[in-house]
Write a protein that binds this DNA or RNA. Structure first.
Lengths: 125, 125
DNA sequence: TTAGGTGCAAAACCTTTGCCATCCC
DNA sequence: GGGATGGCAAAGGTTTTGCACCTAA
């Protein structure tokens, strides 16, 4: 289930080119510049495959939509409560936290997600 | 915009009675025991008002649906990757973290959300 | 009395899926 | 060649909304 098609390549390249936390719609719009008749179904299907291959991950922030990003060094996010934009936060990941919580709760913990919310630079003015 | 209607009271009471992180559908089903003809529209409209009043908050975990809970001492969550169930995690909130990130990034940070993912007790067997 | 709230049904959104044609390996 | 993938359009699931009728204050 991992053929190289131009659609799949284009989606992954876009996400790797530094355009992170994009919605499926934004991805569709952008890839359409290159492959005008690519359908949204294809975008969703490929995002699903890429997720299963561990190349992409999906974020559910406090939005109605999902956002996608190419996997890389794991990191945290900040989302502006006013304009909705999402930014990366370069705080070192606290691996110890997972172990501590696992020990205390008895859950098997594979990772954690941390999101900050507030006002971005522009929206503070 | 803050009338006491039996619908609104019933929804808030349910969430305060200890039934946390419920979906709108679960809330609807439960409140219907008491108010059989309450509509889903009313549930959503009231959740929106209660959120705006700061009495309820909405969680977007890695699901397709939103979950709602009455506001209380803030806390963290764990969601099982297999069965989808959501649990509270009683780790003390790290307030210092918000200040540190705010100082470093220049964002105004009002709060953070932390979610752990992995396998719950049942699903580890 | 009247602004805010409700029920119902339709609309709006986001995401998934069935079908058949097409393409990669 | 044959299974995986794509395009299109329809279906699914969640949330929002318009409208006419109610009801709390």
């Amino acid at each position: 289930m991992n053929r190289q098609t131009k659609q799949r390549r284009a989606i992954l390249n876009l996400l790797r080119r530094g355009y992170y936390h994009l919605t499926a719609d934004q991805i569709h719009d952008d890839v359409r510049k290159e492959i005008p008749n690519i359908s949204k179904g294809t975008v969703y299907r490929n995002l699903k495959v890429l997720r299963e291959l561990g190349l992409v991950s999906e974020l559910s922030l406090n939005d109605t939509v999902s956002r996608f990003e190419a996997n890389r060094e794991s990191h945290y996010h900040f989302q502006c409560e006013r304009c909705g934009r999402v930014f990366d936060v370069d705080e070192p990941i606290d691996k110890e936290l997972d172990r501590r919580i696992a020990k205390r709760t008895g859950f098997k913990i594979s990772y954690h997600q941390l999101e900050f919310r507030g006002l971005c630079h522009n929206c503070q003015q």
